[in-house]
């Protein structure tokens, strides 16, 4: 079994993975600099994705997601929100939510407004 080096770390905060970066991220740190709460720091290794340090201060406003030039960011609501936000498909009565297993395909209708 795994016996690699392990470190003693304090508990993660309640909401723990608030942001996930996919491999499109080039480490430009634009998201780091737009965050009002400054919850991220640039990664010491150049080009790597930033490090989220003050997770419980994240306000979930999504400013960083909109700032990312390559769309590499996804805002991850805490599990207690994901489990609270349920919708039911009217005809089938099926229930769905963000984060469920075998989800619906995405809906691609853009928001109203033509400003990008």
């Amino acid at each position: 079994m795994l016996t690699m080096k392990k470190f003693a770390l304090p508990n993660q905060s309640g909401p723990c993975r608030v942001l996930s970066f996919d491999d499109k991220c080039v480490g430009c740190n634009k998201c780091v600099n737009v965050c009002p709460m400054d919850v991220m720091i640039p990664n010491p290794e150049k080009g790597e994705e930033p490090i989220v340090v003050f997770t419980e201060e994240c306000w979930f406003c999504g400013g960083c997601v909109q700032e990312c030039p390559v769309g590499a960011l996804t805002l991850v609501a805490p599990a207690k929100q994901r489990i609270s936000t349920i919708w039911k498909r009217k005809e089938t009565g099926e229930e769905f939510r963000v984060g469920m297993t075998n989800p619906l395909p995405p809906v691609t209708t853009p928001p109203s407004g033509n400003r990008k």
Partner: peptide
């Protein structure tokens, strides 16, 4: 160093 806030 950068580290998370201490607990309450």
């Amino acid at each position: 160093y950068s580290h998370p806030s201490q607990s309450g």
